[in-house]
Design a protein around this nucleic acid. Structure first.
Lengths: 342, 342
DNA sequence: CAACTTACTGGTAGCGCTACCATCCTCTTT
DNA sequence: AAAGAGGATGGTAGCGCTACCAGTAAGTTG
């Protein structure tokens, strides 16, 4: 006889149940939960009591449908097994853990097409914000981002033409700084070793090249790259290749720390003295760099901070007050260590 | 004059638009998309044409509300910066990339309370399945999992009493195998070095202890642990501590590869011969283990495969046919390398 | 050939919530 | 004291989709 409460819902309390128990309208419950300031102290308390007693939790799906906005941050990174992005993602999570926002993560596998596909999947969900790695989206992806109807933060790089907002640092400057440091340290025949060679690695290479050319030291035979995903074993291999190509090599700037570690291990194995015979510089400064023997010079990148900052900017934009700075350059820091102390 | 299509929706085509264009009922469109087999060839084609022309994409939020089931996998891991879980998560993503399921990831930060909180957040979304790391949930978490109303897969361990399904391997056996290997290799005063000491590390320690006791070699002073998160620098520190406590140490079984690498670096720095003076065994077998100099013995764990298998089991359960095997032990493999070749 | 399946297809009625607008109070202002 | 402003509250009408059930046409059975 009583109304057959929710055939599908499984009997969880709804906002109507709370409203009835608190003796108010459903919409007032909704408001009390979302904008407490707009409901009187009295009702707010009454409603809270009813919520607690019933164990009411709003249905995020219903909420998303009614408001045409899901409390979800879409996050797109190339890879999660790459420690670098894992840290950015960690910064994002940490910044969002006290908010109502959930996180939906996607891997592009360094593929523009995959990125497009994921954006197409994310879009219909109407996320509250999108955070994507890099600035080299395909035209389609860029259009999808522009028409997403939510704040967009591109991360990991700097540039002058973000879709919306941008937080990162200059990989080109990082590559240049690393190379200049090695030149100053007295190395001359400095090689570049790079795996994966995604756009960020390309820019590091460009920075390396700029520094080498400025010093009149550039030689294409010094450059060893591969599209293969980066790993420590690959670092060893590439270094062997580089050395075979150019036996008089004096040092290498590696596009990341995994490669650098591989180079170090190969030097150990081949009894090549580091930093005396070969100098090594990495990129990102994972914590193992400082512990290695010898410790490895690297470019410290603000990965965690990038994640935090991206969320802060997105959150500001969501609440209406767009940050005055749409482009934030968090910089990097050269960590001089034993591996380049000639 | 014409009906003011969707004040909130932003003008994206709806299922009604497709139905009108294809000259069929909305429900038939819905069916054609979800269960093509139940719609005649003719209509299916017509509907597909309308979908393509309008660029219709179903609204996942509306879908979730109407069906009381979101196409989302909830995934709970302790940490993402830990390479081990990153690989499990990668396996999950790879297995789900061709499915309609999205992934919602949560970090517990190795905290039971945080896990409870996340489960409370995930629940109301009505996920299609839940994948959680570990079997040591709090009673509250366990109840939340049991009442989630969807398949649940616990991963990373084995055990006899899963909430629903379980994929992993035995950390205890892994710890024992690593230790037995070192004993066989001729080491006697074998230490255990462990950071973080989450339940899985505890079980590895238990395995170490069992092997040592069986061989009559156990001594509590051989065990060095800390709740501090694991890292390479920490591995160095802990090894120094262990050595200070027990200068006659002959080898160490490390609770993971980061620690092992730290130990190796410290040995290099202190000019301690590996494997002659000190033997080293790690756990997980990250790819840098094989590249290290000397290469480091480790227990290879099927992390990626665990992720894939977990998804496969969840998918099977969703489609009604629960796998006959609710508990899957994927085992591990001892990788003998130079660091224990006395 | 009536009765009964077995495909298909569609209408109706929500899912649980919020946007929009109306209403009802205060409390100011002139 | 009338008019206006502003805050608090509620009713109504969906958001876009799918569960449920009904209905129709075609094939099957005795």
């Amino acid at each position: 006889m009583s109304k057959p409460r929710s055939r599908r819902g499984g009997g969880r309390p709804t906002i109507a149940d709370v409203a009835r128990k608190a003796g108010v309208g459903a919409i007032t419950v909704s408001r009390a939960l979302r904008e407490p300031g707009r409901v009187s102290e009295d009702l707010r308390r009454q409603i809270q009591a009813a919520v607690d007693e019933l164990g009411y939790v709003p249905d995020p799906n219903a909420r998303a449908l009614a408001s045409a906005r899901a409390e979800v941050f879409g996050v797109l990174v190339p890879s999660l097994t790459n420690n670098v992005f894992a840290e950015v993602v960690r910064g994002i999570y940490d910044s969002l853990s006290d908010s109502p926002f959930r996180i939906q993560l996607g891997h592009t596998h360094y593929s523009g097409l995959e990125e497009e596909r994921l954006l197409q999947v994310f879009g219909p969900q109407r996320p509250a914000a999108l955070i994507v790695a890099g600035i080299d989206q395909t035209p389609t992806s860029r259009r999808l981002l522009e028409t997403a109807g939510c704040p967009v933060v591109q991360v990991m790089e700097t540039g002058s033409d973000p879709v919306d907002m941008l937080v990162g640092f200059s990989h080109l400057d990082g590559g240049r700084a690393a190379t200049e440091h090695m030149i100053e340290a007295g190395y001359r025949r400095i090689g570049f070793i790079g795996a994966r060679m995604d756009p960020r690695s390309q820019r590091r290479l460009a920075g390396y090249r700029a520094a080498m050319e400025t010093a009149g030291l550039f030689d294409p035979r010094l450059v060893t790259t591969t599209p293969v995903p980066s790993s420590v074993p690959l670092g060893r291999e590439l270094f062997r290749d580089a050395l075979a190509k150019m036996p008089t090599l004096e040092g290498v700037f590696c596009n990341n720390d995994d490669i650098a570690l591989g180079v170090l291990f190969e030097c150990h194995r081949a009894a090549i003295a580091v930093p005396k015979t070969i100098g090594i510089t990495g990129f990102n400064d994972l914590d193992m760099m400082q512990s290695a023997f010898p410790s490895i010079t690297s470019i410290r990148t603000p990965r965690y901070e990038i994640g935090r900052r991206a969320v802060a900017m997105a959150l500001a934009a969501i609440s209406g007050k767009r940050p005055e700075q749409r482009i934030v350059d968090l910089g990097f820091e050269l960590k001089r260590r034993e591996s380049t102390a000639r």
